[in-house]
Write a protein that binds this DNA or RNA. Sequence first.
RNA 1: GGGCCGUUAGCUCAGUAGGUAGAGCAAUACACUUUUAAUGUAUGGGUCGACGGUUCGAUCCCGUCACGGCCUACCA
Length: 478
Amino acid sequence: MSELTQNEYREQRLTNMRALEDMGYKPFGHAFKRSGRLAEIRADFEEEKVVTAAGRLTTVRDMGKSIFADIRDGSDRFQIYVQKKSLDEEAFDAFKLLDVGDHIGVEGALFTTRTGESTIKISKWDLLSKSLLPLPEKWHGLKDVEARYRQRYLDLISNPDVRALFDKRIAAIRETRAFLEARGFSEVETPMLQGQAGGAAARPFVTHYTALDQEMYMRIAPELYLKRLLVGGFDKVFELNRSFRNEGLSRTHNPEFTMLEIYEAYTDLSGMKDIIEGLITHLATEVFGGLVVGEGDDAIDFNLPWREVTYRDLILERMGEDWYDLSFEDACARAEKEGLSLDPEWGMMMVTHEVYEKLIEKTLHQPTFVTRFPAELVPLAGACDDDASVVDVFELVIGGKEVAPAYKELNNPLVQRERLDNQAGEDTEKVDTDFLTALEHGMPPAGGMGIGIDRLIMTLAGVDAIRDVILFPQLRQK
RNA sequence: GGGCCGUUAGCUCAGUAGGUAGAGCAAUACACUUUUAAUGUAUGGGUCGACGGUUCGAUCCCGUCACGGCCUACCA
């Protein structure tokens, strides 16, 4: 894909480029002072006003002595009119040597055509940059999925919907930062390159740091560093940035993905709930056009309140009121009857969790807070006050996908040490002992939450492939 | 990692029950001074993903590989 295609198109464009060079144009020229971006020129339209504008030539309608063409910049498309008698003869002839895709700067008077379109009637133009390769077809755009991801620049040029979706992603991230900053949270940056990859249970990417001659890991979550900051006195912090997990690629998984983690001291789950409800309804309203996303049975309704249900109740609802009274064998039999294939290593808790993940989670289409998970599943969360076997957490599930898990954070260093030791097993080097030391200095009680930003944007935008919300998704190297 | 499917002109797509391929857009040339996917006439453009095999002959059948898509697995 990176090889320069030698073909008639490129040859022709090189020929045109050299002809323009011979006439004194610089094919990879120079800056050009424009009156404003095209959207601004449109907004400030006045008949007869002389403006300068720059953009990429996208279509040309040549009628001999009269040419209409469109230029496009990052803000808008604008029609230009090139009339033989309105500019130097040489400049008119040179214009005919341009190819679709070239960047040009123009100067001319604004007017309205008889069909009512705002247009610049040009008196001068200059070549700003030559395009040597043709753009994808103007009518059907670029459809080839692989090309769209590998050559996203072409996708962005030829598919306006794609550009619009990324503009929404950009706006959503900007609004997220503004929302949190308005509530007194500080955005921080913690290490992506870590000595131990903690805070989640994924396989990390491993790299080698030459100067220290040490193995390092790309972070799988920022959690343990953000908690250190809680210890250090930052009592309202968030981080909105990339994490990396060395797992498979799928419709909903990219190895590097954007995660928002939020921690607030002296609060609990209700504080996290307020934030996520406020944030998501804000984004839906301000960026994605309303509190109901999608149509028909697929529509997601973000109007509050959202359903709240315990993990246990969901299990009972799906598997029968007697589920937790069954013998292990009977439970397995019932799960297998529902089509699950069970790992013989599993105990009751894992079988139950398989039921949740395979049979229940995907059915939770409307926003749902699932609460009170088994403690063993969530080693970094604190227990519920009334029942130590479950942790005080919620997982916000939307469209069948886990979008935001929130915890009452575990701040008991003794319990935390035990849980991490148990999880690491033999491999004691995997335990982040400095994190445990930090906890021993006293971490305030806190609520914390992680939000998969890519998935949240997918949900709000109604798209089902994570690759459609990541500008350059991971693909195998060719 | 496993299963199924795909890869044809710059782009979007047809097609060949095995005899080396077509359309639209794009390109080139000519005409045309208010077009909007401009129009009209003419012309050029292909290692049919790569490599092997079968065959007189392979883009088509078979195998291997590459890349992609969907499903699946790993991802508290």
